[in-house]
Amino acid sequence: MPGIDESLLEAMRLPGARGALVVDWISGLALGAVGDAPGGDAEATAAETAELARQAMESGTLAPADDGGTGTVGKEPPVEDLILTSADAYHLLRFVVTTFDSTVFLYLWLDRADGNLALARIRLAEMADRLVLG
C-alpha cells in the first residue's frame, strides 16, 4: 500500500520525470519531495505551484456548471488537474480527494522531450486515488 514516498517514487518512474512533490495548496508546504525541482528549490516550487493551485481551486468561473442532478456541484475539488507547459517541460498538478480535511495535490515535473503528457496525466490521477484509497 503506497505512502507519500512510494507514490512519488512511482511518479518518478514515468518517462521524462525529473521531480515530484506532494504539496498543501493552502499553506504551500511540501509534504514530500523526490528528484529535482525546477530552479533547484523544492520549497519554492511547492509555494509557487500552491498559489497556482489555489487560484484554480477558488475560481468560481472555472468550476463545473450547475447541472442540477449529478450532485457533484459544490463538492470539492472543482478542479481535477492543472497542466502548464513551457519550452522545455510539462508541469502537472493533480488534486488528491480525501474525506478528511486535506488540501493537497501531486506535482510532477516532466521533461518535454522525453515525457508523455497524456500517459503522465492518467498515471498521476491513478496515483492520487491510490494514495488515499489503497
Binding site: 507514490s7 498543501d24 478528511f100 486535506s102
Partner: peptide, 21 residues
C-alpha cells in the same frame, strides 16, 4: 489504523502531517 484496513498509509501520512504542522 493501517493494518486493520481503516486507512491507507498515504491517507494516514497526509492527515498526520496536516495535524502535526
Amino acid at each position: 489504523l493501517v493494518d486493520s484496513g481503516r486507512l491507507t498509509t498515504g491517507a494516514l501520512e497526509l492527515c498526520h502531517l496536516g495535524a502535526l504542522f
